[in-house]
Every structure is written in C-alpha cells, then in structure tokens.
Design a protein around this nucleic acid. Structure first.
Lengths: 335, 335
DNA sequence: CTGAAAGCGCTTACAG
DNA sequence: CTGAAAGCGCTTACAG
C-alpha cells in the first residue's frame, strides 16, 4: 500500500509538505497542493491511521463496552452512540461483555491497549480491579445506564423511579394486589434501583412485598423464565409480574404460556425497557420506556467533553410508563 | 502511561529484552523474565497496540460492515462474528451502514485507514468504486449474506431457494392462491434472489404472479408497511404476503392491523429471516430461517484463512422453513 | 541470553 | 512556503 513517501516522491515534494496538504494545513502553495492531490489519487493513497495515532497520541476512537448486544436496549444504545460519535468526528468500537465480567475485562484491556481516546461503559458486574484502574489511569471514562458506585466517573442514565411508581399505581388501579418483580443482578445498579423503586411504591400503596415475590434474574430470558416458574409454583402466585428488563419479560411470557395460562387474564405482565417489538407481541406489553437515544447522545457528549479536556457532568434523564394491554387494561383504553 | 522504556529502566534491562518477555520469546533468562514482569506490574504497564501494529503491519482486527445493526438478523450475525473472531485471537470493529451506500463507504474508508487485517461485508448497494478498489487493493475481504457479483471475493451465504419453495408449497396447501411478495432493494443480491426463488416456485405451482403483487421495499419496516398498503388497496388484494426480511414483515403487520384486518384470517403473512421475537408476536410468524450463527462463523474462518495466507472458498449453507401460525395453519398443527 | 540500532508511517517544531 | 530531522512505542535481524 502506498505511503506518504511514495506520494512525496511522485509529486516531487517532501513528506512534510504531503502531510501538510493531507491535513489541510494553510501554508502550502496551490501548485504543491495540486500536485500532491494528483499523486495521492493516482496511487490510491490511503493515510495510515495507526502511524498517525502513534504520532499524535490520539485515535479519534471511543470504546463502548455493553453487557449484551443481543438485548435490543443495548443495540439501540450502541446505535445512538455511534451516530453521535460520528457526528463529532469519532469512531466507536464496541465490546460485548455478554453479561460476563471476565469477557468485560477482556474487552476493556483490548480497548485500552488500542489507546481509544475515551471509554463508555455499562458495567456488567460490581466492578473489577481493571475497571477501577481504568477509571484512575487517566483514560477518560463515562458510565451509561449502569454504573459503579464509588468511582469518580460521570454517569449518564435514566431514573426510572417515578415511572415504576406509575406502573405500580397502574397495576393497583386495575385491581392487582399481589405484585411480583423479577430483579436484575444485585451487582448492577439498574438491578438494585428497579427493585428499590418497586418496593417503595408497593409500600406507598400499602401492598405487601413478600420475599418470594422477588425473583432473582440476570437480565437474560432464561432467568426470567425460571423466576416466573417459581412464582407460579407458589401456593398463592402473584397476579402481576414486573420484569426488570425486556429479555426477562420474554422469558416470563414463555413460562406463562407453556403452562397454558394467558397474559393478562391469568397473570399480568409488565417490563422495564420499551422496545419496538413490544407493540407486536401478544398481547402488546406495558412497559417503562427509557429515552435510549438521548442516553446515547448525552453519554457521547459527556465523554467527548472529557476527552477534549472540558468538564463533564453526570446527567439523569427520566423514564415514563407506556400503557398497552398486558396488565388487563380495558379494551377501549388508549394504547 | 508507562511505555516499554519505563519498564526497561525499572527492571534494568534493554527494551529489546522487555519486548521479548512481553511476547513470550523463549530466549530470555528466568531472572530477566521475572524482573520485567515485576516492573511491568508495578508500573501498570499496558502495551501500546498502535505502536506494535505499526511495526508488525498487523492489527489483529477484522472489520465488519453491515447494513443495519437494528435488524436482529445482523445483530445476531455480528455477535457470531465477534465470538468466532475472538476465539481466533482477533477483535472486530463494526461499521453500521444503515442501508446507506454513502455511510457504507465512510465505514469502509475508516476501516481501511485503520489497517484492519481483513474485511467482512454485507453490501448495502450494488457496489461503489470504493468497494471494487478495496477488493482489488489487497485487503483480504469476504462477503457475508449479501454480495456483489463480478468481484473476486469469497461469499458466505445461505441459499433460501428451497425454503422459499417450501413456503410457497405451504401457502398453496393452506388454500392460498393469490400470493404477493415484498422485495428487498434490487441492488442487493438477497433482494433479487428471494424474488427469483419466489417467482420460480409460483410458476411451479401454476400460480400467477402479477406485477402489482411484487412490492418494492428496502428491508426497513416503513417500506414493508407502504408496500402492504398498496397490496391492500388493490381491487383484488393478495391472500398472503411474503416479506423478504423480518423488518418489512413487521411493517406489513402494522399496516394490516391498522386497517382492522387480522393475520392470518384476513391476510396470511410470512417472512424471510427468523428471529427470536417471531415466536412471541401475535400470531407467531411463519418464517424462513437462516443459519445465522453458522454464517458468521464460516465467514470469519474464510476471512482469517485469507488473512493468514491460506486459500478461502465460498460457502453456501441452506435455509429452512419454520411453520408457525401466521399463514392460517390449523390450530393443532405443529408449531 | 542480551543489547544497540534500524525502521514501521506519520506529524510538527525549527530553521530557512 | 518548504524541507530535514526528531520522535511516537514498539519489534526484530544482527552481532556478540
């Protein structure tokens, strides 16, 4: 592949001049500019970004470590991140941790070795040594969606508390009294927060929340199914199940169906995270919607602020309840 | 950030020796090995992959350009690609073309400038100059799913012909005679092939396929909806609609519903691409399933073969029909 | 087993 | 406006 040297030779100037025209430096004569452009085109010259990065100490690349690409919430987030980054002249490389702390560390290492300019992460677990190091090491970092308490890293997230309260109010108004929740991993902030918000709302409505109505999940479909099975095996099963993410809601639906039960007639179902498919499931699912694209954009802005030496603050957006038909909503109600 | 020089200084050896222990070169004394390891750990040394790449002329990175990350088929493909690549010691960086040829070229350029070792692409359009150049330029390349005829690049794909024929047979056996198809962009191979296979099967079953039963889509939901609207406005609307991808099927479902019609009672619906959500839609959707993960794995194997100087052949896997309930299948039929 | 040195492809002060 | 030169952080033949 042609290098800057080849372009210099062909256009009869030094590599310094070639570099200048390639970078749009103003002090180059029009003649030189033209000859270099012609030579570069003729040779099919393509700048070597790795050499440039070594020299300039920047890669114009952001890393994004997410816990599960197959989860539509994260896919959408990744998409928003890439869009925002591109608009600001950055590329993004994604590491999919697959909810596995070791794989997460693998991606963090790889990204750090590649000298990405900044790192966006939605941590899978409670924080490994690597995560702490990275935060301290000087690589600009920002947490999105999930975060790790105690680290001095800005957090861009949505607060679902009010929306979860609205959901409990909604279920209560539909006559449901025995409400259960499928929680995410206790090691994740989102895992905890959603349960906390739910517990608080239940208290507000004077509804009991026995331990056996709190199922333990891991944000994947299979765990939602297992937790639901446990609920349904109870002598007094819940009337409504709230899954702390969309994949676990899917698992819950599978389990309910496989027992010949119906949603919402036999068990009401609601989910945290709203995704395009929820409109098309049978029945359409009532969910707490996060402003996913805004989260991605805000996270990129915050990260690039840090990368470029500006201050970056945490940002908290809010979620909202989207009512559909999975909780026994009356037929005529707005969808 | 500490460099190899710092590690050398701290351990009292040359950078050459440090490099050797870091790379597991055999001829290093155990004593040196130990001192270097200790120094590296103490300094929190993290090798600089960009310097290494500049020197070795390899990045151990593969590029993957797909047409739409939000399409579950491609998300799954990307996931499989990453898994396979990681197992072989490579990272992958994804470029999302968003079905936009210009954006596709942007990603191709970026990837090429970053000197990825090889490129996996599922082309959005019929092939830009950049695509042709890249194929000729020496960067190892492999097409997955979609490809561009006329380029000397191995293709890893699934042949849906037999499965599409099975689908037509299935629809025919259920009594449907007026079958319509929502095609993908004519500039994509998958866009064409699926229509061809459909047309051929229709002929085999002695079914007419009038022009107005061939809707033009672009693999996105909105286009599926528009095409379906056109079908339903026809004086004699089709009894069954086959969408050439999952997103267009979603759009078709939206349009059918918004007119107060039901699937499958009023219109039967089937899709190319099977995705997890099709089990949960109302009704569950009959679809042609591609062996997505296998496609991803085979594509990576082929690409790495080329990267590492081995021969790589094209591979064609086959798709299969998955019968569910969206075509008017009798209640008791196997799902 | 070890080190000095060259070189990967760029950018950028410095001098003219 | 232009070029020679240094240097980014590595790896690796070469010599010892």
């Amino acid at each position: 592949m042609a290098s800057i040297k080849d372009v210099a030779a062909r256009s009869g100037v030094s590599v310094a001049t070639v570099s200048r025209v390639l970078n749009g430096h103003p002090s180059v004569s029009p003649a030189a500019r033209e000859r270099v452009a012609a030579a570069a085109a003729a040779l099919g010259y393509r700048p070597n970004a790795v050499a440039r990065s070594l020299r300039t100490h920047q890669t114009r690349t952001l890393g994004l470590v997410i816990s599960d690409v197959l989860n539509p919430f994260f896919t959408e987030l990744a998409r928003a991140v890439e869009d925002a980054a591109r608009a600001l002249g950055y590329s993004v490389v994604i590491g999919n941790a697959d909810e596995d702390p070791q794989l997460q560390d693998h991606h963090m290492s790889t990204l750090l070795e590649r000298r990405i300019d900044g790192l966006l992460v939605s941590p899978t677990d409670g924080g490994s040594a690597l995560m702490t190091d990275a935060a301290a090491s000087g690589t600009p970092m920002v947490f999105v969606d999930r975060w790790i308490p105690g680290l001095d890293v800005p957090v861009v997230r949505a607060d679902g508390r009010a929306a979860v309260r609205d959901l409990v109010a909604h279920l209560h108004s539909l006559g449901h009294r025995r409400l259960a929740i499928i929680a995410g991993p206790a090691a994740t902030t989102t895992g905890n927060e959603r349960v906390d918000a739910f517990r608080e709302a239940m208290r507000e409505f004077g509804l009991p929340l026995p331990e056996e109505y709190i199922g333990q999940g891991d944000f994947r479909a299979a765990s939602g199914r297992r937790a639901t099975a446990r609920f349904l095996d109870l002598p007094e099963p819940p009337q409504a199940v709230f899954a702390a993410d969309n994949l676990m809601a899917l698992g819950a639906m599978d389990e309910i169906r496989s027992r010949g039960l119906r949603v919402p007639q036999d068990v009401a179902l609601a989910a945290f995270d709203d995704i395009a498919w929820f409109v098309h499931t049978d029945p359409p699912i009532t969910a707490v919607a996060q402003p996913t694209a805004e989260l991605g954009h805000a996270a990129v802005r915050a990260l690039i602020d840090r990368v470029e030496g500006r201050e970056a603050a945490s940002v908290t957006l809010s979620a909202r309840l989207v009512v559909r038909r999975s909780c026994g909503e009356p037929e005529g109600s707005k969808r």
